[in-house]
Design a protein around this nucleic acid. Structure first.
Lengths: 258, 258
DNA sequence: CGAAGCGTTGAGTGCTTTCAATAGTTGTGG
DNA sequence: CCACAACTATTGAAAGCACTCAACGCTTCG
């Protein structure tokens, strides 16, 4: 907390190069010199507790956050006070970049559990990306990914029935956990049912019912925050049950599932 | 069609500097030198007919498109052949950038009417943005805007009832038309009811019925593709009728509208 | 002029929501 | 340590919004 700058900097330098997440949150192919430049730009490493905000809607945009550990929820607040969850974020993700155009944040980011982030002043990051072409490309890359993700999300809410949305959400979580070296079948949800329902455009009760359904079907076991997936293929089948033009050969077991 | 390169280039050079859209699709504050560099990068100006594709999903990503006139629909196709419209685009918009991360397009872009676009090879645009900081910033800006727009869209589909979605869609169109110097109250829809319904996550019939409702309410006049908005405030009220926590003072006229 | 495509309208169904009650969990203070 | 409050999650029943199915009218085009 009260370290002086020298200690901070050296600690961070170690961090970026040794951080197991650098493949996720930083552009690859940086040489030693570039890595040093990047390290110098990163302000400090902050620890945040559950419920702490990384940034809030309408605050001026100065900093980009790289999530190191824990998980973060981003959400927007609408005129009438309603909240729209726009995403859950796991270690390695870059947060805040979507405020580039407005210069102030249009969403808020709140920690779902004890987490730690690296703070990167955006103006310095932008200057750095003038020197390092691959860094520039990486910023575009990250934003492009977010757009694609949002389009998927859009498609899901617009076209898929409730059960397919929740199944897809769980599979997505599973995939992202496995990518980070955790179990793809057994994990804990750091977000509430309310947050899940909000993200998926559903009512809390619907989510709760669907969890129970899935459990009854033997697809998974759920107990509060703890999830264990038993039948990955079965879950995937649920996500594809939203075919509008039913093919000639309909899956025979779909009746027993629905 | 058969012009040689010299004629093409000079024609384009004139275009970028004199184009009435440069404030929308190009970064502001470019000096003469930068403008020349940009002009040299733009490959040519292509005219496309209704139904022509700018690019298709899965095609390799090489080019960014700046829409000069007309309108374009972007959409993704899902496993089962379903289509998800992700947006309608008006002159001044930059298309294709969301493919940066994958190197191939994850959506398709099709002209809704006779349109013209400027083609910009992405690798050259990226090189250019290494030389021109404001160009780099502009690319981030454009993508940031798209993310914010997608989040709005997400919120709309997740939280708003059908009538609010259509009202919001019409108001958005109206706004964008007025920004481009067209009437904000009287315009033509270049997209089909099907496309509108798809974008808004609704059934075609619902959209059709809502148009009729709105007309019955005196909010607008609609005849095929032609729209004339009579009561802008009324439309805005429709979009805010999705308050979950009804405030003490409820709007008195809401009963007659719903 | 007939066919095809798009748009409108009606009737009935169904998925999801809302309302409501209960149970489990967490946190606090006596 | 327990009791109470506040919050989160689950479950049931009823209602509603939007969808599906279906028919018809209008427009476009060969």
């Amino acid at each position: 907390m009260k370290d002086n700058n020298v200690i901070e900097l050296s600690a961070i330098r170690t961090t970026c190069q040794s951080c197991g997440l650098y493949q996720l949150c930083l552009p690859m192919g940086l040489d030693q010199g570039d890595m040093d430049k990047l390290d110098k730009v990163i302000k400090r490493q902050r620890k945040i507790e559950r419920g702490d905000h990384l940034y809030r809607m309408r605050e001026s945009f100065t900093t980009v956050y790289a999530l190191r550990s824990g998980s973060v929820k981003t959400y927007s607040t609408i005129e009438n006070g309603q909240e729209q969850v726009t995403g859950f974020h796991l270690p390695g993700e870059l947060l805040g970049l979507n405020a580039v155009s407005t210069k102030f944040h249009t969403d808020s980011a709140i920690a779902l559990e004890t987490s730690s982030v690296c703070e990167i002043p955006f103006d310095r990051l932008e200057n750095l990306s003038h020197e390092i072409p691959s860094m520039h490309h990486h910023l575009l890359h990250v934003m492009s990914e977010e757009i694609q993700h949002d389009h998927c999300q859009l498609m899901m809410i617009a076209k898929m029935p409730a059960e397919a949305r929740l199944a897809r959400f769980l599979l997505s979580l599973s995939y992202h956990f496995s990518q980070r070296g955790f179990s793809s079948t057994k994990f804990n949800l750091s977000m509430s049912r309310n947050d899940i329902a909000n993200l998926l455009g559903l009512a809390v009760e619907t989510v709760s019912r669907l969890f129970s359904h899935f459990q009854d079907e033997g697809l998974l076991t759920v107990e509060r925050k703890s999830i264990e997936i038993h039948d990955m293929d079965g879950l995937m089948n649920v996500t594809t049950k939203c075919a509008s033009h039913p093919l000639p050969g309909k899956s025979p077991s779909s009746d027993s599932l629905s």
